[in-house]
Nucleic acid binder design. Structure first.
Lengths: 173, 173
DNA sequence: TCGTATTTGATATGATCCATAACGATTATC
DNA sequence: GATAATCGTTATGGATCATATCAAATACGA
């Protein structure tokens, strides 16, 4: 169990058949040639992102939480008392668009806006008890269903490597 | 030059400082704690995808091509004579939404719809000379600027591994 | 201290993308 | 030849994303 091992790719899992067996999806007629699209990172990135979000929604469908809503609740839990601008900024959400989003969460009593005593312009954001409970259940669903599924498809080492590379792109690109 | 080597991760490039040096972006006040968000694959996936698309647009800005438009032109080149349903389906675009997109490309004389002789309902799609020329220039820009930049940030081996994993998710997830 | 500039949450608005239903023309099926 | 299915299209609504602007509150400079 060396640290060396954990950062290696599991090539046996990644190498797959070159798409000749069992035409299922878009193979009504003869499949189209993808050409250079297969090597375009942005394309695979987008397709993978859609699939992952789709699965996320399935896994937490019982809680009616979108990925964006989940990320907001998470930030509120880890950073209670921050205002709307701060939460929205760190998530890349524009303040005007964050208002309706908060309205939704607040109307479901998952979080609350509290006028700050020091600066009466801003709202201190915090989870309600219901919000904390919902978030806890969401975390459990995501860990046991969503991320577990990714581990099955990729393998733990690959999943960790993928996460690291994506974070690198998001940070340094 | 073993296949083994090419599918290994370059850990020395992936390992980065744990984000303590040079607060630049959203670090107006004290940076917020990201919590479990750092381990949520979908989150990093989305952020990375936005960055990559952003860079794509920059690199081909002289040609005024979006990622979606580029993928359509590419498919038309590799599969001339296919109809709108086929092209749209393989790209995950719904047929109604594909109409306006084609209108745009056709009005710029990058491609043309030709009524099929065998089935007068469908349009055979194909690039114009201008479309082929534009696509060729786009490919060059993407290869020399866009993908080259990704190679710099990730390293060639990591870039290949990333692409493989993303394709795996898009396919098997 | 007063006047100005900035910040915060909010509203209005438009662009873009994504999804569904339905239609006319054409073709396939029985 | 009647019915069903397919193709491109239109219309439409929802969701996301971006910009300008506002009132209230605060910060700041003369």
């Amino acid at each position: 169990m060396t640290a060396h091992k954990t950062t290696q790719l599991d090539a046996s899992r990644l190498a797959r058949l070159p798409r000749e067996v069992a035409m299922d999806d878009d193979a009504e007629a003869s499949a189209l040639k993808m050409g250079e699209l297969s090597d375009l990172l942005g394309y695979s990135l987008k397709r993978a992102q859609l699939k992952v979000f789709e699965d996320f929604l399935r896994c937490v469908s019982s809680l009616q939480l979108t990925p964006a809503q989940f990320s907001v609740l998470l930030l509120m839990e880890k950073n209670p008392g921050r205002n709307q601008t701060e939460i929205a900024n760190t998530l890349g959400i524009l303040r005007p668009n964050f208002v309706a989003m908060l309205d939704g969460l607040e109307s479901r009593e998952l979080c609350m806006r509290v006028r700050s005593a020091h600066d009466r312009r801003s709202h201190n954001l915090m989870l309600t008890d219901k919000g904390r409970a919902t978030l806890a259940r969401a975390k459990k669903l995501i860990a046991t269903k969503h991320e577990a599924r990714l581990n099955e498809v990729l393998g733990p080492a690959n999943r960790a490597a993928l996460l690291e590379m994506l974070a690198t792109i998001a940070r340094d690109f």
